[in-house]
């Protein structure tokens, strides 16, 4: 069945909203599969990416309306993370519209059905994933499970509460995410192909020597790769540390 949709619903608003659609017999396309979580704030981008890697064509995260989260601010946490992931999807041409955050109240059965129908249509128009998508999705998963981005995302609500500029913060998150993406693409290349030197990796990934070298240094610093010999082209060869991650 195409498109396959995974919908994460919070226990307090969206899931009862979907129940209410059922009780009212509001019809919607058969494509959506609902996963219940206690709060939309529990929806780690890692879970969303796992859904895409496992074959979903679109993922929706549904929570309580702003200001009505059963757990105060979980819905904002979800929105911030999915927005960032959406940005990366667009940047890597995976189609940001495959991802959507929606607020569904327990009484909004009709809205649940309408939004689901609309989303299924949107994803149908974007089409199926291309071959190369899986690799990028796995790099994204590494990025969102990586310490640096998680720390930055985790600090967001407190920073914003204490007066940080929201737009600036968003830009910073995007910058960190992009840097991390590069780093984990380098790691993925080494993991797949064994030992390689900086120049070869840079060419493979279409990155500059400088930024590739920075990625190597970061990965070495984190203990994920180690230095090897000097290659024939006089560039340092690095290898992936097995057994890590």
């Amino acid at each position: 069945m195409f498109p396959k949709i995974i919908t994460f619903c919070c226990n307090w608003c969206a899931y009862p909203g979907a129940d209410f659609a059922g009780i009212s017999h509001f019809k919607y396309p058969v494509n959506a599969r609902i996963i219940r979580v206690m709060c939309s704030g529990r929806v780690d981008p890692g879970l969303v990416l796992e859904a895409f890697i496992s074959g979903a064509d679109g993922v929706m995260v549904m929570g309580c309306h702003p200001g009505e989260c059963h757990y105060e601010h979980g819905n904002y946490e979800a929105e911030r993370r999915i927005k960032l992931l959406r940005y990366l999807f667009d940047k890597y041409e995976l189609g940001g519209k495959r991802l959507r955050v929606e607020w569904i109240a327990a009484s909004e059965g009709r809205k649940f059905a309408e939004v689901t129908a609309d989303f299924v249509e949107t994803v149908r128009k974007i089409g199926a994933f291309q071959e190369k998508a899986r690799e990028i999705l796995e790099v994204m998963k590494d990025t969102f499970y990586g310490e640096r981005l998680r720390l930055a995302l985790g600090a967001a609500s407190r920073a914003l509460d204490s007066g940080a500029d929201g737009e600036k913060y968003e830009e910073t998150l995007k910058k960190i995410a992009e840097e991390e993406m590069k780093k984990y693409r380098v790691l993925q290349t080494l993991r797949k192909e064994g030992e390689l030197c900086v120049r070869v990796v840079a060419e493979k990934l279409g990155l500059s020597l400088r930024e590739t070298f920075d990625c190597f240094l970061d990965l070495k610093h984190e203990g994920l790769i180690e230095e090897g010999d000097i290659g024939e082209d006089r560039y340092m060869i690095y290898g992936f540390v097995r057994g890590e991650r």
């Binding site: 979580v37 206690m38 709060c39 704030g41 529990r42 929806v43 780690d44 059963h70 757990y71 601010h73 979980g74 946490e77 993370r81 499970y145 990586g146 310490e147 640096r148 998680r150 720390l151 995302l153 985790g154």
Partner: peptide
């Protein structure tokens, strides 16, 4: 604890 799980989404070390 109310079990919302936001902490799990935030934790950088798993």
């Amino acid at each position: 604890c109310k079990g919302c799980g936001s902490c799990s989404t935030t934790c950088p070390s798993g």
